[in-house]
Amino acid sequence: MRKTLLILSVFAMLLSSCQEDTVKRVAEQQRDIKKKEAVFNVIERSWNFADQPINAQTQAIAGNWGEWRLFLTELRQKPKSSIAAFQKKAKELSTRVNDLNNNIPIKFSQPEIKSRIAALTTKVRSLDLYISLDDIPQQKVVMCISDINATLFSLKLQMEELVAKDNIPVEQGESDMIRMLDTTRAIPNKPMK
């Protein structure tokens, strides 16, 4: 009798502990779902990339730069369904921003542009990193989006500045003065024998 009573009490404790674990697990899953929904809502509200138009001359030069057009097209498309869609979009943006260094137009193949592309690449990669984590730091994602907007604005502004510099007319005699400053044309400094 004692043995059956002991076995029944152990069985009852196991059964009640399993039910408590199930209740705890369901409660944790509900909290996790609510947290992911909150993160999704914050990211969806802040996923706005400023696409400032550039002037016509700069647009004509950048129009031949296919990688730039693909990056901007990818940037304009906003995912809507889930966190996984945002993660996929961030990965695609990271791929597109890496391609920006390919086929840069000669006019834009300057250190100022390349450094801004490198900064933009870093910002997009950090967005991809933060949004790919299991526990997404939503404030860092929001900060990365605003940093990408600022860097993109700086890149477009530098493009327009390079085009504007070429539109400044050369004064009379300025080309001769620039040629005189060229050290490769200088008279050699070797003594004659």
Rank of each mutant, 00 (worst) to 15 (best):
E112N: 01
L155P: 00
Q138R: 15
M143F: 09
L127F: 01
F40V: 07
K91M: 04
K140R: 11
A84H: 10
L72E: 07
A85D: 05
N102E: 05
S126L: 13
I104T: 15
N101F: 15
P79T: 02
F153C: 00
Q138A: 15
K80F: 05
P53T: 07
I148D: 01
I117F: 11
K107M: 13
L133M: 13
A50C: 05
L70N: 06
L120M: 09
S46V: 11
K80D: 05
A56E: 15
R45M: 11
I168D: 06
V141Q: 00
I43E: 08
E161G: 00
A56N: 10
K80G: 10
P137N: 13
Q110G: 04
S94G: 11
N55V: 10
V97C: 05
S81H: 15
R45K: 08
S82Q: 08
A84C: 04
R96C: 11
K91S: 12
S94H: 06
C144S: 14
K165L: 09
N149R: 08
F71A: 01
S115W: 03
M143R: 01
Y130L: 10
P169N: 13
K91T: 12
Y130R: 08
A90Q: 04
L157K: 09
G63V: 14
I148S: 02
L70M: 13
Q87E: 13
N103G: 14
F40E: 03
N41H: 14
G66T: 14
E112I: 04
M159I: 02
V170Q: 13
L120C: 06
T121K: 02
P79S: 02
L70P: 00
L162R: 06
V124A: 00
S82M: 04
L129I: 07
L70I: 13
A164I: 02
L72H: 10
A38W: 12
V42C: 07
W47T: 03
L127H: 02
R76S: 11
I61M: 07
E67D: 15
N167H: 12
R45L: 14
D135Q: 14
K78Y: 01
E161N: 09
S115M: 11
I148E: 00
A60S: 12
S94K: 07
L75A: 00
N167P: 03
K140I: 01
F49A: 05
K80M: 07
A85T: 07
E67I: 12
